[in-house]
Amino acid sequence: MNIDRFRTLAGRYLPGLLASVVVAIAARSLASQYQAPVMLFALLLGMAMNFLSAEGACKPGIELAARGVLRLGVALLGTRITLEQIAALGWHPVLLVVISVVVTIVLSMLVARAMGFNMLFGLLSGGATAICGASAALALAAALPAHPGKERATLFTVIGVSALSTVAMIVYPMIVRAVGLDPIQAGVFLGGTIHDVAQVVGAGYSLSHEIGDTATVVKLIRIAMLLPVIVCAVMITRAQGGHESGQRPPLLPWFAVAFLGLAVLGSLGGITPALQKFGSGLSTWCLITAIGALGMKIQLKELTTVGIKPVVLMLGQTVFLAVLVLGLLWL
Rank of each mutant, 00 (worst) to 15 (best):
Y172I: 06
L265G: 11
P273M: 13
E302F: 11
I236L: 07
G122P: 02
L18P: 02
L287I: 05
P250G: 13
R12L: 15
V312H: 01
L324F: 02
T154R: 00
L260W: 08
Q247E: 15
G191S: 12
V23P: 01
S53F: 10
I3G: 14
T82P: 11
A88L: 08
S108W: 04
L17S: 10
T154H: 00
G241K: 13
V69G: 04
L287T: 01
T318G: 10
L181E: 00
V176S: 01
V229T: 08
F6I: 14
L313E: 05
A153L: 10
G269C: 12
V306L: 15
L76V: 05
V323W: 02
I308T: 08
L30Y: 10
W285N: 05
T154C: 05
V201N: 02
L72E: 04
L64W: 09
T284S: 08
V98I: 13
L331V: 07
A322W: 08
G133C: 05
H147L: 09
V97K: 10
M109S: 04
V179F: 00
V257H: 01
P183Y: 02
V197N: 09
F278S: 10
R80M: 09
A48F: 03
V171T: 07
L303D: 09
T79W: 03
L123V: 04
I62V: 14
L70R: 06
G269A: 12
P15Q: 10
G204S: 09
L265Q: 10
R113D: 02
M296K: 14
Q33T: 13
T8C: 15
V161D: 01
G68I: 01
V38P: 02
F156L: 12
A54W: 12
W285E: 01
M174N: 09
V98F: 15
V306A: 14
W330Y: 07
R71K: 14
M1N: 09
L30I: 14
V23I: 15
V161M: 01
L300I: 14
I159M: 11
E210Q: 11
L265P: 07
L14G: 02
V171R: 11
G187I: 00
V200E: 07
D196R: 03
Q299N: 15
L138N: 02
L294C: 10
Y34D: 07
I25W: 06
A141Y: 00
G292E: 08
L181K: 00
F117V: 03
M314Y: 01
P145C: 14
L77N: 04
G242A: 09
S162Y: 01
T104R: 03
K277W: 12
L268Y: 10
R238Y: 08
V158M: 12
C58Q: 14
Q299V: 07
Q33H: 12
P145Y: 06
L226E: 02
T289C: 06
T79F: 13
A57G: 05
G187H: 00
A143E: 05
F121Y: 11
A48K: 01
S206R: 07
V171S: 05
K150H: 09
V323R: 02
E210I: 06
C286Y: 00
L252H: 03
S125K: 00
M39S: 10
L43S: 00
T237Q: 08
W285D: 03
T8P: 06
H209K: 13
L262Y: 03
L326E: 03
G261L: 11
V264D: 10
L14N: 04
P173A: 06
K59R: 15
